[in-house]
Design a protein around this nucleic acid. Structure first.
Length: 232
DNA sequence: GCGACAG
DNA sequence: ATCTTGTCGC
């Protein structure tokens, strides 16, 4: 199955594919140090099949932006909770292939293994590219957890039955926690450690925060390209 | 049956 | 996610 063919899948087939991919997930320590970390995100206009995907590259742990890439693509796969990867991975893969340099690790906006079948978008993308990934979500999809104390970096494990699938991490005082989970080829502990090193005063870690700003700018610029002519 | 439900 | 201004709180 190729990402380019995802749009031909029915929800049931997508779920069957996730159960297949599930066997290949590797939650283990990183095999090399991180020099460059990437952040990926997608943006789109409501009701449109056009999607703007982007990836930002930053030096780690300095968090200084090195470069970025973006692409305008399209998808017909709808947003279905639990099947987000089938809608966003194809476009993200296009940007990934445009990258002149590949990061040592990629942070995605969404879950890693904190998913009903352990196949959040970060895990899915990591498996497809064979690159270490971390899922950093703004809200919970799966797992029970105790509210972390109102202190920066207070954390609390997320449980699915008796299994720890993620960590609720408070990255800023008086702000809701974010939900971290390893995607592929990294451990739970390292995932949290890396994200903590990516916090610079905002609730969202730098990789994903910059990626979000990037794709939004690309979308707004592209959406207004028709109007610019009438201005002359 | 009812509530939950990444982006 | 996106649509959108002001506004309450630290």
């Amino acid at each position: 199955m190729q990402p380019a063919d995802y749009e031909t899948l029915t929800p049931d087939q997508a779920i069957a594919y996730q159960n297949e991919l599930r066997q290949k997930i590797r939650i283990e320590p990183l095999d090399k140090p991180i020099r460059i970390i990437g952040g990926a995100d997608i943006s789109f206009n409501k009701y449109s099949e056009i999607v703007y995907a982007g990836i930002i590259l930053l030096k780690y742990p300095e968090m200084t932006v090195i470069s970025h890439a973006s692409v305008v693509s399209r998808t017909s796969f709808p947003y279905i909770s639990g099947l987000l990867a089938f809608r966003e991975v194809p476009a993200l893969l296009e940007v990934w292939n445009k990258l002149d340099i590949k990061p040592d690790l990629l942070v995605l906006d969404g879950q890693g293994i904190a998913h009903e079948r352990r196949l959040g978008i970060a895990t899915h993308f990591g498996l497809v590219t064979d690159v270490p990934t971390i899922g950093s979500a703004k809200s919970r999809l799966r797992g029970k957890y105790a509210e972390p104390a109102n202190e920066v970096f207070a954390q609390s494990p997320m449980y699915d039955r008796d299994e720890v699938i993620g960590t609720a991490l408070r990255t800023k005082r008086n702000c809701n926690p974010i939900f971290i989970s390893p995607g592929h080829r990294i451990s739970m502990e390292q995932s949290v450690e890396v994200i903590k090193n990516c916090i610079r005063g905002y609730r969202i870690p730098e990789p994903t925060r910059h990626a979000h700003l990037l794709v939004n700018k690309v979308r707004v610029d592209d959406s207004g390209k028709d109007t610019q002519f009438s201005l002359f």
